[in-house]
Computed example of a mutant assay.
Amino acid sequence: MSFGAEHLSIVSFRAPFPSRRVARKGASLPNKHHHNDITMRFSQSFTSALLLAAAGVAQAASSWSFDEGSLSIAAKKGSDAVKEKLNAKSPLSKPIALGSADTLKVTFTAKDNGRGKRPHQAFVILKEQDSGLEAPFPLTLKENGKAVVQIAQKEIPVNLLLSDKPLKASIVIASFGSATGFIAPAFDIEITTDPNVAPPQYEKPVRYGKRPEIHHTFRADPQSPPKIVSLFFALAVVATVPALFIGWLALGANVNHVTKAIGAAPLSHATFFGSIVAMEFVFFMYYTSWNLFQVLPVIGVVGVMTILSGTKALSEVQSRRLAGER
């Protein structure tokens, strides 16, 4: 061990006889005060390291739990039919019966490393044993860690109510930070139903997947009426044309303006009249052989021609009316 340039290097060794120290000639031994100072510094450093290690172990060992837990079943009249104490280390040995009109109440104090504290999350989870389905019920929390939740039988999902086995109830406590969360079984619930009331029915939800193939049978194409009926109505329509002209003559229609109208706007009047005839022809073809997809494009073209030519033709007629020509 070396203490500095001005001090002597001391060598110790073991032998069958008592150990002794041999100093080289001309050197001096370290003084007693210097040795005590080194020992004190080493003790302080070791103590600080030990305290830091203990603090780290305490921080790593921090975990959530609960205390002062209790469970009660409130009947419809308001009295507590059952009251049990809950232990974080072991669940209740017997299942708790929950009737159709009863309300389950769970209270406890959440603790972080033994101190009452509000966690970020706290739930009572009910689990069906066969299917593994779970239903979480969050607890109402206070800053001091006090937690409470009330669960009525009507609030439990139907698929859990229909279970033949008791429901497993677990308590879950967790929060942000390095503290380890808590999850452990607390008690079992045995659902009892009212025999005078029909049991609830569970309907499976609709799930996306392969469905059975749909075979659609189209009905037969519509048949045309007998030709004699069609011929009768066609003649009835044609017979109205002479009646139309006779009515015009009886009402005093001025046929002399035909030449004047054609002379003023020959293309507009001819196109307008031709589009009306073409529209009637389209209806005739639809009745006899065309389908809807063949008729619609032709009607669109003829309709545009009717609007454009009719606007100019009727404007020409209006100009003659404004001029006093009848």
Rank of each mutant, 00 (worst) to 15 (best):
L251F: 12
L141S: 06
A250I: 12
Q153T: 09
T217W: 04
S224C: 01
T306I: 03
E6M: 10
K210V: 12
F273C: 04
G114C: 03
D164G: 15
P225I: 15
L141I: 06
A88V: 01
L167T: 05
I10K: 02
H33G: 05
E68A: 15
E6F: 05
S131A: 15
K117P: 02
Q201F: 04
G132N: 07
V298R: 00
K32L: 12
P166C: 09
H269G: 02
V229W: 08
A198L: 13
Q294G: 06
M279D: 05
L160D: 02
M279E: 07
V206W: 06
F46C: 03
V317M: 10
P138K: 14
G4H: 08
V317Y: 07
L8H: 14
R320Y: 14
L167P: 03
P266F: 09
A198K: 15
Y202G: 00
P199W: 05
N113Y: 07
A27Y: 06
S12V: 11
Q294M: 05
E280L: 15
M279W: 08
H257C: 01
W248P: 01
L244V: 10
A239Q: 06
G263C: 03
G247A: 10
Q150G: 13
A236Q: 04
V206R: 10
L50G: 09
L71D: 03
R115G: 03
Q201K: 15
A261D: 09
D194Y: 13
E84G: 01
N159I: 13
S309D: 11
N291P: 08
G310H: 06
V106H: 02
V295Y: 00
K154G: 08
F46M: 06
W64T: 11
G78M: 11
D221I: 04
A61W: 04
T306K: 12
T109N: 10
I125Q: 12
N254L: 03
